[in-house]
């Protein structure tokens, strides 16, 4: 996994609550057996019309947000299906940080496995950030995982929480499976002491 340390980017605002993983990547694109190439299908029905033409009004299609690595969005982002295709699509498209006041549990987990940093902030700060984008559409922030800060060039700064273990894994790009496999003895010991009915 690619390590994540720090980045500065324009923030893409997608101010809707309860965005589900079907919206992030519709089911019709889940038949592929690869892990890559899902970015082209991200928010497909919102980005493209029935003739597969870009909808100019949709925020991701605005030139100012092209190449943005940070998505600012509504509460309960990533709800619904457990499909990891959702973080694959977000990451492949270019989003490495997602900011919301709440995330769905499975999606939140899936992000960390794919080098995406999901950041939970209080709703009033999320709204403050949306307001800043309203005032200045190419509003930029810097996300520093090491220091756990989000800041802009005008002196705005907030500290965010992140689980220390997940932080370490992201900073170092660690492979969970490799870590668990090192505990082979403990797993064996457990298997010896416990009978699955």
């Amino acid at each position: 996994m690619e390590p994540f340390k720090k980045l500065t980017s324009v923030v893409t605002p997608l101010n809707r609550p309860n965005i589900d993983t079907d919206a992030i990547i519709p089911t019709e694109f889940l038949k592929r057996i690869e892990r890559t190439g899902f970015g082209q299908f991200l928010f497909y029905e919102w980005r493209f019309d029935e003739q597969e033409k870009q909808k100019p009004d949709f925020v991701l299609n605005k030139p100012v947000y092209e190449g943005s690595n940070i998505l600012l969005t509504g509460s309960n982002f990533g709800c619904g299906s457990s499909r990891e295709h959702a973080p694959w699509a977000l990451s492949d498209y270019g989003f490495k940080v997602i900011i919301a006041s709440a995330f769905a549990d499975i999606f939140f987990n899936n992000c960390f496995k794919n080098g995406i940093l999901p950041i939970k902030l209080p709703e009033d700060i999320v709204q403050q950030l949306f307001q800043k984008i309203n005032e200045h559409e190419s509003f930029q922030i810097t996300v520093d995982l090491e220091k756990q800060t989000i800041s802009d060039s005008q002196g705005f700064q907030v500290i965010f929480d992140v689980d220390p273990y997940r932080k370490e894994c992201l900073l170092k790009g660690l492979d969970d499976i490799g870590i668990t496999l090192e505990k082979e003895e403990k797993i064996k010991q457990y298997e010896g002491s416990y009978i699955v009915i």
Binding site: S82, D105, I106, K113, D176, I177, E191
Partner: peptide, 23 residues
Amino acid sequence: AFGIGTSEVEHVLATQCLQQEKP
């Protein structure tokens, strides 16, 4: 019983274990 992502599916296939925060 709970749902997991594909990375976790791979983790369970390989180790029969899962890293979990206690809910």
